[in-house]
Design a protein around this nucleic acid. Structure first.
Lengths: 236, 236
DNA sequence: CGGTTCCTTGACACAGGTCAATGATTGTGG
DNA sequence: CCACAATCATTGACCTGTGTCAAGGAACCG
């Protein structure tokens, strides 16, 4: 992780869906006061590892970061993929030790806000704290969603759910985009969904055969979202 | 749910592992000030349903309550079994709408603390709030544990993990107890673990054949916890 | 352009879902 | 308190889906 100095949220295309960006845009506190640090994380390297003290919270600016529950689930138990505009899982409101390891699945840029600075901003603007608590409880809901996506579902349903979920999140940043890019490998997707990479591959092929999606390497296009949703819910 | 008046934590055997109980025992605030309400929940009836406003937080006093993620996972997607001494999943610090439905799997007694009262106590004793945030973040961890227990694991491993987890939690209340009771049906266990009740049954039988457990109806005895743990982790 | 990694596809075996029948346990009313 | 009914648990047979092993092909990187 290499420091890149401080940035100005006013120029950032993610401002509207980014929590630090909204803070910066929202009132008295300028981006400079927030002291957002930007950094590059090379493909395959860790932003932080399990057990490390977390002094900041992080947002993904570009690329994709995977969060791994190494302790309870082993080295390929991926709990979340974070795409641009999203916060990494928050595990406390100041320097707590991380319970996950976060690794870039492709070259990524992140923004970091030190807790110390954040608490200063909160003191000046109390409504920020409430908004932040919202975000944290939503993070808990995302784990429940993943649970629902894999428990009692077949491989095709899981992969359909994964694609729909990822598309919805990427479309927050780029609405109306027909095609999107999978930053992560088939092995990563398999680890996330509790499958094998071969099964993920076969599921992609099957969905393509049914003309619901087009998959070429890492590029994915969803042709029929409604039908894909019916596959996900098992009403095919 | 039938009101049973207010109770006195001083007489309660769960005081040491119960959060309201610790609050009551811990200092200036007496049980009476906490205004803990006790209530009976009959087998199969709901403590609250999805979408209802939650004005209190709840602890299980006896019996067992299942929490169901009806919205994302369907009617048998059980997210948690709450046993005596445990808090039901907390979904906000004051009257938020519930995202789960909570149903008693056997006749149960619960204690309820209204948020309004709790916030008054917090104002008088700030360390209580910090302890409570701990509890809430741990609740998030329990979903991650369940995820780890089912993702990429076979039926025997899941059932072994379930028994070990439940035993550990019940032993907080009754240490050294060799035998414990499963309040929930095989169908409930299956819904929790993402299996079918027949498979749960077969797994119990297989674990019994290996002389790791004794299962007779709802009574379970764990003969060899170490070996059971090795089954769970897949090192058999 | 060559080497490495990643992806796709096939063949096969086995775990677990499904359907069905029997047996045990619990609860209820006479 | 017993008997009956209803629910719940267990077991078997069968079949589908996914993991496993293996090989070939495509994409990516230096």
């Amino acid at each position: 992780m290499r420091k890149e100095g401080e940035g100005y949220c006013g120029l950032c295309g993610l401002r509207r869906i980014c929590f630090p960006g909204r803070v910066a845009a929202g009132g008295s506190s300028s981006p400079r006061q927030l002291r957002i640090r930007r950094a590059r994380v090379a493909r395959g390297t860790a932003l932080y590892r399990i057990g490390e003290r977390i002094e900041s919270f992080y947002m993904v600016r570009s690329g994709c970061i995977k969060e791994i529950d190494v302790a309870t689930g082993g080295p390929d138990a991926i709990v979340n993929f974070c795409v641009p505009g999203e916060l990494l899982i928050v595990q406390g409101a100041r320097g707590a030790r991380s319970q996950t390891t976060s690794i870039a699945v492709e070259a990524s840029y992140i923004c970091a806000v030190p807790w110390r600075i954040f608490h200063q901003v909160c003191a000046a603007a109390p409504e920020i704290a409430g908004e932040f608590i919202e975000l944290v409880t939503k993070a808990g809901a995302s784990t429940r969603e993943l649970l629902a996506m894999i428990r009692g579902k077949g491989a095709l349903e899981r992969v359909a759910g994964f694609l729909l979920n990822l598309r919805a999140r990427l479309q927050l940043r780029a609405p109306g985009q027909r095609e999107f890019r999978l930053g992560m490998s088939r092995d990563d997707i398999a680890g996330y969904l509790g499958l094998r990479s071969e099964t993920v591959s076969r599921s992609f092929s099957e969905l393509a055969r049914r003309e619901l999606v087009v998959v070429r390497a890492k590029r994915v296009q969803i042709l029929d979202p409604q039908e894909l949703r019916r596959v996900y819910t098992g009403q095919e």
